[in-house]
Write a protein that binds this DNA or RNA. Structure first.
Length: 485
RNA sequence: CGGGGUGUGGCCUAGUUGGUAAGGCGCGUGCUUUGGGAGCACGAGAUCGUGGGUUCGAGUCCCGCCACCCCGACCA
């Protein structure tokens, strides 16, 4: 437990969740504030976590047939304005370049809030025939959205993400692509970040400006609030029409292709923090942890130090004997600090396993293995551990996912009336599955009166005749209500 | 943009009726240490968020601005 008044002590999660979050991000050295309002500096440890999920998602994107590309940061005003709903939706958040080279520009340039507009315009010459389709591209880039209120990783003025943009000959193929994008996000969230998600469709009022519909994954944080973890949009022919993209189909008729776009951002670093962390700091899933095992040597005299060093060397050599073992990210902390200091240091940073090796362990040919998530300690023979470590990391990863699933399940409730929703949210927060008629007016009323939003219409919500909690109108299925980030 | 709060070495804080900035942590060097945030000694480090104003004199009083945090509206 952190000592009272210790300089690096962090706010308790239960006392002040946002305060806890900030402490973890700043003191865990994931990110820092920047001289620019609302923007963040991602530090090495935080960036390593981003790179890990980025690599994983990039592999999925490539495996599903998308090529990485790059389009400009600047979007001419006229292009951004072509799709009416799109402009209207994004205008309040766009940063404009109005001057350059010491002179006012003839045409303002938007700093991309997203790239649909410039991509649609750019590809119109590439798509002539059905033979040019599908066109499946992906960009890793930064975008800027002028946010009123920012939070490190969760919502920053500039953020890093990936945007996939695809064009298809048929509506059906585009719809399948929307599912492909969402599935990638589900896989990375659940299998890589150990964050269980609820897949569903956004209500019309929550969909992407310019899309026909938006699919999303929603995740529960440890304060029981929801976080939108990724979105996949069916753009229909909206942008193709606006940009005049046409192709000649097999039936010799000129048609607009169907588009999709999907994005996944640095917000997911924040999701990982908030989905697993505890009062001691981060709890990272092994797959994303920049350091998976930290070895803390313990010794008094030089002879002891030498013996401990030898045991560590042998352990690492044994670990490196298999390809799987070699891939384990191990760090030996030889710094000239006390063991207790190092324990706290690495716990704050969420390292899954700590291996303490001292003179007593060397004598017994073992090490003391401590699991970050529950602080359980277990003496393990070092040679055995070298063989088992990859499997233990997999088990840890699976346990973390299960723990998050259990937490989500425990805090998800079925309610049938508006009053139950309000009372439940007031009393304990969480996710609420409740009947809704589908009318935006009812959705808006709940939001205005309580701040609760419909996160999505979950795909696995079974057909169930019911009465809308607001208007008593007929409801076909329950939808997910929650407070959200 | 509205409501609330905070700004003093890297971090946490003290600073009296206004008198020229103090302590702890951290940092550097040396020695002693090391199984849950080690000890001693010496040392470096501050235009008190910022711009004005009042005053002989401002960290302190007054006004403006900025940044950050919390709550709300906008949103990945």
């Amino acid at each position: 437990m952190p000592k009272e008044g210790f300089v690096n002590s962090i706010t308790r999660q239960s006392e002040d969740f946002p305060g806890w979050y900030n402490d973890v991000v700043l003191k865990g050295e994931l990110a820092d504030y920047s001289p620019v309002r609302g923007c963040m500096i991602i530090r090495p440890y935080g960036y390593a976590i981003w790179e890990s999920m980025q690599r994983e998602l990039d592999a999925y994107i490539k495996a599903t047939g998308h090529d990485n590309v790059y389009f400009p940061l600047f979007v001419p005003k006229s292009l951004l304005e072509k799709e009416a709903e799109h402009v209207e939706g994004f205008n309040p958040q766009v940063a404009w370049v109005t001057h350059a080279g010491g002179k006012p520009l003839d045409e303002w340039l938007a700093i991309r809030p997203t790239s649909e507009a410039i991509i649609a315009d750019s590809v119109k010459d590439w798509i002539q025939s059905y033979r040019d389709l599908p066109l499946k591209m992906n960009i890793w880039n930064n975008v800027v959205r002028w946010e009123l209120r920012t939070r490190l990783f969760l919502r920053t003025t500039e953020f890093l993400w990936q945007e996939a943009h695809t064009f298809h000959a048929t509506k059906q193929e585009a719809e399948e692509e929307v599912a492909t994008g969402l599935e990638g996000y589900r896989q990375v969230s659940e299998e890589w970040l150990a964050i269980p998600v609820i897949e569903g469709r956004k209500t019309d009022s929550e969909k992407f400006p310019g899309a026909d519909f938006t699919w999303c994954i929603e995740a529960m944080m440890r304060d029981k609030k929801a976080l939108q973890a990724g979105t996949s949009h069916m753009l229909g022919q909206n942008f193709a029409r606006a940009a005049d993209i046409e192709f000649l189909d097999t039936d010799n008729v000129r048609k607009h292709p169907f588009g999709t776009s999907w994005g996944f951002s640095t917000r997911m670093v924040g999701a990982t923090i908030m989905a697993h962390g505890d009062d001691s700091g981060l709890v990272l899933p092994p797959n994303v942890a920049p350091v998976q095992v930290v070895i803390v040597p313990i010794f008094r005299k030089d002879e002891e130090k030498a013996a401990v060093a030898e045991a560590i060397d042998k352990f690492q050599a044994a670990l490196a004997e298999t390809p799987e073992g070699k891939a384990v990210r191990v760090k030996v902390d030889w710094r000239d600090d006390s063991p207790g200091f190092k324990y706290n240091h690495w716990e704050l940073r969420g390292v899954p396993f700590r291996l303490e090796i001292g003179p007593r362990d060397v004598a017994a040919g073992q090490g003391m293995l401590v699991k970050r998530v529950d602080r359980s300690k277990e003496p393990v023979p070092l040679m055995q551990l070298a063989a088992e470590l990859p499997a233990r990391l997999r088990t840890y990863q699976a346990e973390l996912l299960q723990r998050a699933r259990d937490f989500q399940a425990e805090n998800t409730h079925k309610v049938d009336t508006y009053q139950e929703l309000k009372d439940g949210m007031e009393a304990e927060g969480g996710f609420y599955m409740a009947p809704w008629c589908g009318d935006a007016k009812c959705e808006k009323q709940v939001n205005e009166e309580t701040g609760i939003t419909i996160r999505c219409i979950p795909f696995d919500s079974p057909a169930e005749a019911g009465k809308c909690i607001v208007c008593d109108g007929p409801s076909e299925r329950r939808v997910l209500f929650a407070r959200a980030y």
